[in-house]
């Protein structure tokens, strides 16, 4: 079985197992590898972190399909756990969605979500969002479902309608998206615990995702609380970007002021630890395996 098939099957099994699928968004391959080593069973690749990590730009539609898919490919290749990807609005119309589903499926992603914002989109927890019509989004979901080559490549619908037309419309839209073929559903940026509960209660038979952004519009809950509410998937999209920004800034300030990293050594991994973690021993062994052996003709 190919790695891609293993990842799709594993992710589908997780999503429908009844247990909570706990995902962190990885801005790059290194952070994905760290997440894998620390016990995460699946990785999310998403726009906020990719825009920040690759472009140093906010999540305002500046990261395009080329950048997003290249980042996803790097992450997929770096880990041996399923990678679920953020396909934003599909970056165009149904023809663009047809292309991107093929690209993501071929690279070995486990699935993707498509949202109903207008392009250029913005982070779901930013103000000023607008959405396309329900019919237009249903057409996009159809396009995604029709484009996939494997039924276990999961398609998630995301609606940003809560901020535009309210919770009831967001839930109704999501019902239509599920009918159109979305395997998983996601209502972005509910504002209260009651909203979250209403979302979860509205889809008792469909895996629903909750998005936990620190200081975002949605209350920050524990995985246990999310699962008890009825959600099947939790994603933590910004924590690695915020943490690395905090740590990097703190370290670099000290370097500028003190001219040395000696006082920060306790906050780093060591040279041998990192080399071991990043797989130097494995690479050396692989090279040795294919070392040239003398041949006598």
């Amino acid at each position: 079985m190919t790695k891609a098939a293993r990842m799709r099957q594993a992710f589908k099994q997780m999503c429908f197992s009844g247990d909570l699928v706990n995902m962190v968004v990885a801005p790059d391959a290194l952070s994905a590898k760290i997440a894998e080593r620390t016990g995460f069973k699946a990785i999310f690749q998403a726009g906020y972190a990719t825009s920040a990590g690759k472009l140093a730009q906010p999540d305002r539609g500046i990261a395009d399909f080329g950048l997003m898919s290249e980042t996803a490919r790097e992450i997929v290749n770096a880990v041996d756990i399923p990678v679920f990807v953020d396909a934003d609005t599909g970056y165009g119309d149904e023809q663009n969605i047809d292309r991107l589903v093929h690209v993501y499926e071929n690279m070995g992603a486990a699935g993707l979500f498509i949202e109903d914002q207008t392009w250029p989109k913005r982070c779901g927890h930013m103000d000023g969002k607008t959405v396309i019509s329900e019919d237009a989004m249903v057409s996009k979901i159809h396009a995604a479902v029709n484009a996939r080559q494997h039924d276990d490549f999961l398609i998630m619908s995301r609606t940003d309608a809560y901020a535009v037309t309210g919770l009831d419309d967001a839930i109704e839209r999501t019902r239509q998206y599920h009918k159109a073929g979305a395997d998983l559903v996601f209502v972005e940026a509910p504002k209260t615990k009651a909203d979250l509960q209403k979302v979860a209660d509205s889809f008792p038979d469909v895996p629903v995702m909750a998005n936990m952004i620190e200081n975002g519009k949605t209350p920050l809950l524990s995985n246990e609380e999310i699962h008890e509410m009825g959600f099947s998937i939790a994603v933590h999209p910004n924590v690695l970007i915020y943490t690395s920004t905090y740590a990097t800034e703190k370290l670099l300030k000290d370097m500028v002021e003190l001219g040395t990293t000696k006082l920060q050594l306790d906050h780093m991994v060591t040279f041998p630890q990192f080399n071991h973690f990043i797989g130097l021993d494995d690479i050396n062994a692989l090279e040795q395996k294919f070392a040239t052996a003398p041949i006598k003709l």
């Binding site: 399909f65 080329g66 950048l67 290249e70 165009g92 119309d93 023809q95 663009n96």
Partner: peptide, 14 residues
């Protein structure tokens, strides 16, 4: 690059 004829399939970074 894509073997297609719809210019809108390419992204700007590509």
């Amino acid at each position: 690059e894509l073997g297609a004829t719809n210019e809108g399939l390419i992204s700007p970074s590509e």
